[in-house]
Amino acid sequence: MIEFDNTLPTTLDGGANQTAAQTLDVAVIRVDQLRALAGLLSLEEVTEQFADLSILAQVSIFGLFEDALADIRAALTLESTHPTS
Score class of each variant (00 low, 15 high):
residue 1 M to K: 10
residue 1 M to D: 13
residue 1 M to C: 08
residue 1 M to E: 13
residue 2 I to E: 11
residue 2 I to W: 12
residue 3 E to A: 13
residue 3 E to S: 13
residue 3 E to H: 12
residue 4 F to Q: 08
residue 4 F to Y: 13
residue 6 N to I: 04
residue 6 N to M: 07
residue 6 N to P: 05
residue 6 N to E: 15
residue 6 N to H: 06
residue 6 N to Y: 03
residue 7 T to G: 07
residue 7 T to M: 09
residue 8 L to P: 06
residue 8 L to M: 06
residue 11 T to M: 04
residue 11 T to W: 06
residue 11 T to G: 08
residue 12 L to N: 06
residue 13 D to S: 10
residue 13 D to T: 11
residue 14 G to L: 02
residue 14 G to H: 04
residue 14 G to Q: 05
residue 17 N to Y: 09
residue 17 N to W: 07
residue 17 N to S: 14
residue 17 N to I: 04
residue 17 N to D: 14
residue 17 N to T: 14
residue 17 N to C: 06
residue 18 Q to I: 08
residue 20 A to G: 10
residue 20 A to F: 11
residue 20 A to T: 07
residue 21 A to T: 13
residue 21 A to S: 12
residue 22 Q to I: 00
residue 22 Q to D: 15
residue 24 L to E: 14
residue 25 D to A: 14
residue 25 D to S: 12
residue 26 V to Q: 08
residue 26 V to A: 11
residue 26 V to S: 06
residue 27 A to M: 04
residue 28 V to H: 07
residue 28 V to R: 14
residue 28 V to S: 10
residue 28 V to K: 12
residue 29 I to K: 02
residue 29 I to R: 01
residue 30 R to P: 01
residue 31 V to D: 14
residue 31 V to L: 11
residue 31 V to K: 12
residue 32 D to A: 15
residue 32 D to W: 04
residue 33 Q to C: 07
residue 33 Q to W: 04
residue 34 L to R: 08
residue 35 R to L: 12
residue 35 R to E: 14
residue 35 R to P: 00
residue 35 R to K: 13
residue 36 A to Y: 07
residue 36 A to I: 09
residue 36 A to G: 09
residue 37 L to I: 06
residue 37 L to P: 03
residue 37 L to Y: 02
residue 38 A to K: 06
residue 38 A to I: 07
residue 39 G to F: 01
residue 39 G to V: 04
residue 39 G to R: 02
residue 41 L to Y: 03
residue 41 L to V: 03
residue 41 L to I: 05
residue 42 S to D: 14
residue 43 L to H: 12
residue 43 L to R: 15
residue 44 E to R: 15
residue 44 E to K: 15
residue 45 E to R: 10
residue 45 E to I: 09
residue 46 V to H: 03
residue 47 T to K: 12
residue 47 T to A: 13
residue 48 E to V: 15
residue 48 E to D: 15
residue 50 F to E: 09
residue 51 A to M: 08
residue 52 D to Q: 15
residue 53 L to Q: 08
residue 53 L to W: 09
residue 54 S to V: 05
residue 55 I to P: 00
residue 56 L to V: 13
residue 56 L to H: 12
residue 57 A to R: 11
residue 58 Q to C: 08
residue 59 V to I: 10
residue 60 S to H: 02
residue 61 I to G: 00
residue 61 I to S: 01
residue 63 G to M: 01
residue 63 G to N: 01
residue 66 E to N: 11
residue 66 E to P: 00
residue 66 E to R: 12
residue 67 D to Q: 12
residue 67 D to A: 11
residue 67 D to Y: 02
residue 68 A to L: 00
residue 68 A to I: 00
residue 69 L to K: 09
residue 69 L to R: 10
residue 69 L to I: 14
residue 70 A to H: 05
residue 70 A to Y: 03
residue 71 D to K: 01
residue 72 I to E: 03
residue 72 I to C: 01
residue 73 R to Y: 06
residue 73 R to N: 09
residue 74 A to Q: 10
residue 74 A to F: 02
residue 75 A to K: 04
residue 75 A to D: 09
residue 76 L to R: 01
residue 77 T to E: 13
residue 78 L to I: 02
residue 78 L to S: 10
residue 81 T to G: 00
residue 84 T to L: 11
residue 85 S to N: 12
residue 85 S to D: 15
